[in-house]
Write a protein that binds this DNA or RNA. Structure first.
Lengths: 151, 151
DNA sequence: GGTGAAAACATAACCGC
DNA sequence: GCGGTTATGTTTTCACC
């Protein structure tokens, strides 16, 4: 793990608020030249701290109005491998995210669908037929907000 | 809502895999010139489909080794407004995401901490003291994977 | 760390289909 | 409307000090 100084932390904080700022704009605010700032960003990238940027899409504008979180328990933990479950679930296009967790559930899934009828189709034909699936609990997303977190 | 043709969908698919690709690089792969590709991206941005990009950080490399998902129920006895809860929870730096959901829980929180001892501190001093908080259920993240989804 | 320069990029204007 | 070409300012990226 690499050591971050004060300037690195300020750069990360500024980028969290708005990714896609140029090295020159960032450098002006921390008192560094453009190439020096850029070299710091490259160092953070090579250290694996900055992993690039993810697209922010608006699912509603693409016709996906429903987001559902599923908590799933596997029923036959001894018999079914986690790999088989993960491979099967990752083949469902409506599944956006698969989180392997420890606790009341074994997996948490984020699923999008065009509407509730479409979600029911996905649930019945794709989710409930997964190998080893047990109890399933669902929460429908109403609103969502993200925060930068402690840097 | 705007109509997307085949090329728009391919552009979105490529950007979902790696945002931050240049218009020139994208255009070469779909057989368009750089300005033509850029105009399509601008059109998608103006249509509200592309909402910019968010930084992808590696929390582990910044010393945050623990991610916990909390499902929280609000206690019904107190007449606590959702706004008051949301305002209070959004002031906790360890809370990365707040999802207002419909189902077994009222809110889902994504919380990061340096380790489990640090998480316990956050849970006892910040989470359990939130206004109107009721039952809390926790799942510790083991592994996580994202998928492009249906585009 | 800074300076300077080359290549790539974003962005706009103009033209043809 | 669509895309292509050209032109300009900016950003990235890589020399060298």
């Amino acid at each position: 793990m690499i050591a971050l100084d004060e300037i690195d932390r300020r750069l990360l904080g500024m980028l969290v608020q708005d990714a896609g700022q140029s090295a020159g704009a960032l450098g002006r605010r921390v008192g560094l030249s453009q190439p020096a700032t850029w070299r710091r960003l490259r160092r953070l990238r090579e250290a694996g701290i900055l992993r690039g940027q993810r697209l922010r899409l608006e699912p509603g504008k693409l016709g996906f109005g429903v987001t559902v979180f599923l908590g799933v328990k596997l029923s036959r933990k001894a018999g079914v491998s986690l790999e088989a479950f993960e491979r099967a679930v990752s083949g469902i296009p409506e599944v956006q995210r698969v989180e392997h967790v420890l606790g009341l559930y074994d997996y948490r899934l984020r699923v999008i669908a065009r509407d509730l009828a479409d979600f029911e189709r996905v649930l019945r034909r794709r989710i409930m037929t997964l190998p080893g699936i047990g109890d399933v609990e669902a929460n429908v997303l109403l609103t969502e907000e993200r925060f930068p977190g402690p840097l």
